[in-house]
Amino acid sequence: MKRQIPLALVFFFGVLMIIQYFVPHEASEWTFEFLMDWIYIIGIFALALGIWSLVKVSWDKIRLRRENWQYAIVTLLGLVAMICFGFDYFRNVFNAAGLQNFMFRHFFDYIMIPIQSTMFSLLAFFIASASYRAFRARSLLASLLLLAALIVMIRFNPYFGPLTAYLEQTASWLLNVPNLAAKRAIVIGVGLGMVATALKVILGIERAYLGKD
């Protein structure tokens, strides 16, 4: 029973959703709405689990004075502060309630945005270093890759004068022909793979998601 009930549920709802997708009827729309609400409810449990996990891991780190435990304090303070400002527990600190709250917006604009932008901008340095070491003309294929990368990178460089137009055309051809062919093959392959996997799950052939017990 422990395995049969989940398998039956997956089969039933899998087939139901396939039929629902292709039937433009009021009942079908109602089913979709109803099941969508269920997914959100399940998601809320996942959110609660995520918050609990974050608090527990951070608290244990502080309690046991693990390496870099001080950062865990910042994590917890950030979590509490954003929840309190967002839900207005401090009752309008610096006016405007909820998501328009002054502190909520300023925490996002002046802490979150610079932090994430800085982290991502570091990528440029790692890309520069990685491309210097990786782009070597070791073989014919590597040389072709190197050449293609260089053309795409310099395609809009205005300092190449009349060559720019040719570079642009070549880059456009590279993106629209070889790149397109490869990507399309991958997309179609992945799509077929997804359909096959979904069918295997719905029909109970693929049971890994049930776990080992």
Partner: peptide, 16 residues
């Protein structure tokens, strides 16, 4: 920035 990256790629390949 792209020109710097290209420059380093060229330097690396000449050396290689």
């Amino acid at each position: 920035a792209h020109m710097v990256i290209i420059l380093f790629i060229i330097i690396g390949n000449i050396g290689f």
